[in-house]
């Protein structure tokens, strides 16, 4: 790669390319075709990591790292956050609603791809320079020298753009409170007025034996209390009802107690 002009890359790089290129394309296709947004995001992250490797292979060490850190690390995580925010369960129906949209899109994508490939194939790119000379003083130093000299204005403007974007995002997602927040006293009064469960909800669990949140507390007569467990768990059917077990334990306990008491009585009778 240090040669002035090379015609081919090393075999190792070729091998790496052919393997990872397949991964990248599969990842891209999965991004497009996966039903759930989360899966799409994960596939895209995979493709991006592959691309980061390709950057490194192409001598763009700084960009490779930035790709991993910024893209797969920050941007994709942001995507995942939003996916979680707007409905992780909302599976996107792949049924097309616009008439002919899918065919048009496929035709356009295919035609565009063919055109690009044809264009690249048409260009005479048999030899390449390689970055040996450019990276001689270090890739990061080379980039820095360019950014702070030749591209300094672009750099500054990009900085302004980033700040604007940050402020814009805040403005967009900011919600103005339209009414005064209720004070604690008002909340308490409202709760009393509705007359529904004025004291704190009873705790879940049975005595000291069970304190898990999925086990409802028992009332004095041994039945379970609905108030002690989360409605979500109940809706999911994830509540363990231990009331029977507890009652059985109680019965056994009483039986044993009686048996002991009986033995004592029998002993007393025998003592007589």
């Amino acid at each position: 790669m240090n040669a002035a002009a090379a015609y081919t890359t090393s075999t190792g790089e070729a091998f790496q390319f052919w393997v990872l290129a397949v991964v990248a394309v599969v990842g891209a296709l999965c991004t497009v075709l996966m039903k759930k947004a989360v899966h799409s995001a994960l596939c895209l992250a995979g493709t991006m990591i592959v691309l980061a490797v390709f950057y490194l292979a192409n001598g763009a060490y700084f960009l490779g790292i930035v790709q991993i850190v910024v893209y797969t690390g920050a941007v994709m995580m942001l995507f995942l956050f939003v996916v979680m925010l707007v409905g992780v369960t909302a599976a996107d129906s792949l049924k097309e609603t616009l008439k002919g949209q899918r065919w048009l899109a496929a035709a356009c994508g295919l035609g565009f791809g063919v055109l690009l490939l044809a264009g690249i194939g048409n260009a005479s790119l048999t030899s390449f320079e390689g970055l040996g000379k450019a990276n001689a003083g270090g890739n990061v130093e080379g980039l820095a020298a360019l950014i702070f000299t030749k591209y300094v204005f672009a750099f500054e403007i990009t900085g302004a753009l980033l700040i604007t974007a940050a402020i814009g995002a805040m403005v967009l997602t900011h919600r103005e409170r339209t009414e005064r927040a209720a004070t604690q006293r008002e909340q308490a009064e409202a709760r009393v007025r509705t007359g529904k469960q004025v004291p704190p909800l009873p705790a879940p669990g049975v005595y000291a034996r069970h304190n898990a949140v999925d086990i409802p507390g028992l009332l004095p007569d041994g039945t379970t209390s609905e108030l002690t467990v989360s409605e979500t768990l109940r809706a999911r059917g994830q509540i363990r009802d231990v009331s029977g077990e507890a009652l059985a334990d109680l019965a056994a306990l009483e039986q044993r107690a009686e048996a002991r008491l009986g033995r004592i009585e029998r002993a007393e009778e025998a003592g007589k």
């Binding site: 390319f17 891209a28 390709f54 496929a106 790119l125 390449f128």
Partner: peptide, 23 residues
Amino acid sequence: MNPVNYLYLSALLFSIGAAGVLI
């Protein structure tokens, strides 16, 4: 291998992405 293959890959990914935007 010629590094031009990276360009082909790039074109392919671009087209897949574009089709995804449309679909």
